[in-house]
Amino acid sequence: MSGLNKVVNNYQDAMAGLEDGMTIIAGGFGLCGIPENLINEIKHKGSRNLTVVSNNCGTTEHGLGVLLPSKQISKMIASYVGENAHFEAQMLSGELEVELTPQGTLAEKMRAAGAGIPAFYTATGVGTDVAKGKPVRHFDGREYILEQAIKGDFAIVKAWKADTFGNLIYRKTARNFNPLAATAGKITVAEVEEIVAAGELDPDHIHTPGIYVDRVIQGTFEKHIEQRTVRSQSDKQGA
């Protein structure tokens, strides 16, 4: 009996049940707040024909990008896919199907799936290629398109701290899509830097309540930086 204890101790157990052809929703923005080791486990496991839903597809070397040379992803749903050489090649050859989705719509698709909302209307994308084939409705004289929620067979997220019940706390902008992804998986796996006993996290500080989380694993992270920008004493850019 493990009761409410969500802790697993190895990556095989963390991703147990992942099969070819499944849909995976992944948290992260660029390489910030990505579940690095869960992604590596998917690569190691060799699952194929995956649909992956995430804001980006990593870089050539890191993040979800590592699943591209092994051709494990057949469809990618993302808002921005600019930093990966393999990506464009596979997209142009037709090996990889890509559904470009506006960032806010992508976040809302995850949030809606987790909240049991099958679809929602938004003004984002009206009059663009994104609107093609989607039902349109007018509210108060403005045009909106209907966007469907996206549920994952798996959701994989990265948090800073967890307790054994799977309550999660994120750190700084590594939060991004993670709390939304966490709600949208049939099986949600959280990879964290530290696991503490239930009761040790302040309930007022929890970002993702453990009810959404099925498995928690403690990992060590490389945390690669895509754009290492530093200010010099004379440089005010980015102020």
Binding site: F29, R171, N176, K223, I225
Partner: peptide, 29 residues
């Protein structure tokens, strides 16, 4: 910054760099 930050500051010094704190352009901030 649409990745989830209201109140973006300047670029960090070398000592302040934090991989968990970036802007929507994926720059450290």
């Amino acid at each position: 910054s649409e990745n989830g930050l209201l109140g973006m500051g300047q670029f960090p010094s070398e000592e302040q760099i934090d991989a968990d704190l970036i802007n929507a352009g994926k720059q450290t901030v």
